[in-house]
């Protein structure tokens, strides 16, 4: 099972009728069991790529093939929870078949157990993000998309949530795609990094990280980061 992407172009027209060229060349493949990471400047078109990959946008040139039966789970940049349903109901709506055992396991990993019956309006952003994560994992996805899941959280919280994501990602073989502009997150969580250019976005470089996630020392992470920064500068 793997994701094959070859997007050759994507344009859109804004409200003023101007035509924008958003994506130029996005070609990669990502096997199940690996975490692919899109790293790129904000506004470069990462979210547009995600919309295409998740089937929300069909208006592009090129080809995307993902396994036809793959269950899709996604964590959006904003949590996108239903404010009128409790945390539990939000998750059960997306994953009606989840059993109680798995449900409570997931909630204890994400430390959400005591928030089960709360409404999203009563949660902080960090908590709402975790609920969105729980929802994406609850459906036991074959293809998981994480769109800036750690953005606008404070450092300590982000680091904590990053570990929780790592734990969950390890627990299941699936195609995982993470979008971030944070190099720390990219190197900590990713197996294969795709460096994107500014608009119109194309993949500048594909950087595999051979060491398994659990075995990456702080020194190695720093080393990879420094290397990435150098590569990026070299490209510019």
């Amino acid at each position: 099972m793997q994701l094959e992407v070859d997007i050759t172009g994507k344009h859109f027209e804004n409200a003023a009728g101007e035509r924008h060229h958003v994506l130029a060349g996005i070609k990669f493949s990502l096997p199940a069991g690996e975490v692919g990471v899109f790293v790129g400047p904000s506004g470069c078109g990462k979210s547009t790529v995600l919309k295409i990959l998740t089937g929300l946008d069909h208006d592009y040139q090129g080809k995307v093939s993902r396994p036809a039966t793959a269950r899709l789970g996604m964590v959006f940049q904003e949590p996108r929870l239903l404010p009128w349903r409790s945390v539990e109901d939000n998750i059960r709506l997306a994953a009606p078949h989840i059993d109680e055992k798995r449900f409570s396991e997931l909630f204890s990993v994400l430390e959400l157990t005591e928030h089960r019956s709360h409404f999203p309006g009563e949660l902080s952003l960090g908590l709402a993000r975790r609920v969105a994560l729980a929802r994406a994992f609850a459906i036991e996805p074959d293809f998981l998309v994480l769109d800036e899941p750690l953005a606008s959280l404070d450092d300590a919280l982000a680091a904590h949530l990053r570990e929780q994501i790592a734990t969950l990602v390890e627990s299941r073989v699936m195609i995982t795609l993470l979008v971030t502009h944070n190099l720390d997150d990219a190197v900590y969580l990713g197996d294969r990094l795709f460096l994107l250019s500014a608009r119109p976005a194309r993949i500048l470089q594909e950087v595999p990280i051979p060491t398994p996630r659990a075995g990456r020392s702080a020194a190695e992470i720093n080393h990879i980061k420094a290397d990435l920064v150098r590569r990026r500068l070299a490209k510019i």
Binding site: T54, G55, L56, R71, L72, M74, L82, R85, L93, A94
Partner: peptide, 24 residues
């Protein structure tokens, strides 16, 4: 619209989505 997208990504059947996402 963002909730519509959520329902579509998670493949929530139309009837359920109408009842739980649209109607409220």
């Amino acid at each position: 619209r963002s909730l519509d997208e959520m329902a579509s990504v998670f493949a929530i059947p139309r009837g359920r989505a109408f009842r739980h996402v649209i109607l409220p």
